[in-house]
Simulated scan of single mutants.
Amino acid sequence: MELTMAADELKTVLNRLRRAQGQIAGVIKMIEDGRDCEEVVTQLAAASRALDRAGFAIIATGLQHCLTDVDPAAPDDRDRMRARLEKLFLSLA
């Protein structure tokens, strides 16, 4: 399954990933500086949400593209694609 996304979808995902990257760098710095545990966990949770949202956006695009590209006359292909996408979705749950 190839990742093909429209430019605006790709930009949104990349922005979320960059935000998560910055948040993770911030968490590392906070730990190195001995910051409060609650603050560290709050930032870590924010980074986790940003990663999850990026993952869900990629899966949603995959659902949209992959399921529409499957030949309706080939139910086995459709079932296999559905199983693969379900597995991806559950990996983020």
Rank of each mutant, 00 (worst) to 15 (best):
L3I: 09
D69F: 08
L51I: 14
T68K: 09
V70R: 00
D33V: 08
Q21T: 13
K29E: 11
A54G: 01
R80A: 15
C37M: 14
A57S: 10
D69V: 09
A7E: 14
A45L: 15
R35N: 09
A46K: 01
R49V: 06
R49M: 08
L10H: 11
L17Y: 00
V40C: 07
S48L: 13
A20E: 04
K87G: 08
M1I: 10
V40L: 07
F89V: 07
F56D: 03
R78D: 02
A25C: 07
I28H: 07
E39I: 12
L10Q: 11
A46L: 04
L90C: 09
E32F: 05
T61G: 11
I59D: 01
R80D: 14
G26R: 01
G62N: 03
K29A: 14
T42S: 11
A93S: 14
L85G: 01
T12A: 15
Q21E: 15
V27L: 02
A25I: 04
L17Q: 01
G26I: 02
E86S: 10
D77Y: 05
D77G: 08
D33H: 10
K29R: 14
Q43F: 05
R35H: 10
T61A: 13
M5R: 06
L88E: 01
C66D: 00
L10K: 11
Q43Y: 06
M81H: 05
F89H: 03
K11D: 12
R18G: 10
V40G: 03
I31V: 11
R53T: 05
L51S: 06
R35V: 04
V41C: 12
E86P: 03
D36L: 04
R49K: 11
G62C: 08
D33Y: 08
R49T: 06
M81R: 04
K29C: 09
A83N: 12
R53H: 08
D36G: 01
E38I: 15
V40E: 01
P75D: 07
A54W: 00
C37P: 04
A20R: 02
L14F: 04
R82C: 10
A60D: 15
A93E: 14
R82F: 11
A25P: 01
A57L: 09
H65L: 05
R16D: 00
I31S: 05
T4Q: 12
K87L: 12
E32W: 06
R18M: 11
G34Q: 13
R35Y: 06
L17W: 03
K11N: 14
L51F: 10
E86H: 10
D77K: 07
A57Y: 00
P72S: 15
L51W: 03
A73S: 15
D33W: 07
C66W: 03
A6K: 15
I58Q: 05
G55Q: 01
T68W: 06
R53L: 07
I58N: 03
A83S: 13
